[in-house]
């Protein structure tokens, strides 16, 4: 009964969240423009590959075109899996605004999730031109298997779940320490290196590649991008998707536990 009421509220939450996204469209555009890293990496790698293609661990030859396809895909995926609840939670805890949220008969994490998700339609619109460029210039480098394209949304959802719940977990640390945002910086630093954001993981030395397999980051960016750019077959992708959703599940559990003990502390010390 309780969950049913919460589910019924979701469409309205998304609708209002979308109105908010529209009100903050200029701000969102700044965020999108700030995602320059994949484009800079694209320039770097195409310059490097100019003289001769870069050879990856698997023996694949990475020419300029392959890098363009890869990094434009990274840009698109980054837009679609992003979440920023850690900053919101930190801000509301420090300003004492979380009290207003706690007074409402709805799990605050759910309302954060909906307000983050409500930005997705606008973000998707922003990625459309990039998608168009990608399809016009590098169509031959994108996967031609329709089954892989079916898996792609699943991988995006999995990637978003990991991002969002990692945000909630780190945001919940604001209940305990003043500087949870700095923890977020550390998380982001690791994310940049191990997610495939700065370079295709295939170019990693062997031992770093193995480390990346076991960390959550590559399932945020790397997996969906590798699916798009035809580096993975369905057979190869399924076990990776399984790992991705395992990570997502772990993040959900960890973040909700942290959130709960954080709220207890908040109620003990006040906001």
């Amino acid at each position: 009964m309780k969950t049913f009421a919460a589910l019924r509220a979701i469409p309205t939450l998304l609708k209002i969240g979308f109105s908010e996204a529209v009100a903050y469209r200029a701000e969102m555009l700044v965020w999108v423009f700030a995602t320059t890293m994949p484009l800079i990496m694209m320039m770097l790698w195409t310059t490097v590959a100019e003289a001769s293609p870069v050879v990856g661990q698997g023996g694949k030859q990475w020419g300029s075109g392959a890098f363009v396809a890869y990094f434009l895909s990274v840009f698109i995926v980054r837009q679609l899996i992003s979440a920023w609840a850690a900053w919101e939670i930190n801000f509301e805890v420090r300003q004492g605004m979380l009290s207003m949220r706690l007074l409402r008969p709805m799990h605050p994490v759910l309302s954060f999730a909906m307000s983050n998700l409500a930005y997705m339609p606008m973000r998707a619109v922003v990625t459309l031109p990039v998608f168009a460029i990608l399809l016009v210039t590098e169509l031959s480098r994108m996967t031609a298997q329709w089954q892989v394209w079916l898996l792609w949304p699943l991988a995006l959802i999995g990637g978003w779940l990991i991002t969002f719940f990692a945000n909630v977990a780190i945001g919940s640390l604001s209940f305990f320490i003043d500087s949870s945002i700095k923890i977020m910086d550390v998380w982001l630093a690791a994310f940049f290196v191990f997610s495939g954001y700065l370079f295709p993981l295939e170019l990693f030395p062997e031992w770093l590649r193995i480390a990346a397999q076991w960390l959550p980051f590559r399932y945020q960016i790397g997996l969906p991008v590798e699916l798009m750019t035809g580096q993975l077959t369905v057979e190869a992708a399924l076990p990776l998707l399984a790992r991705q959703y395992t990570w997502a599940g772990l993040m959900v559990v960890a973040s909700l536990l942290l959130w709960r003990s954080g709220i207890k502390r908040f109620q003990a010390f006040g906001g």
């Binding site: 910086d185 630093a189 290196v193 030395p205």
Partner: peptide
């Protein structure tokens, strides 16, 4: 950490 992220790409390149 940031130093590492700044240096790691060079090791890859």
């Amino acid at each position: 950490f940031w130093t590492a992220t700044a240096v790691v790409p060079l090791f890859v390149v």
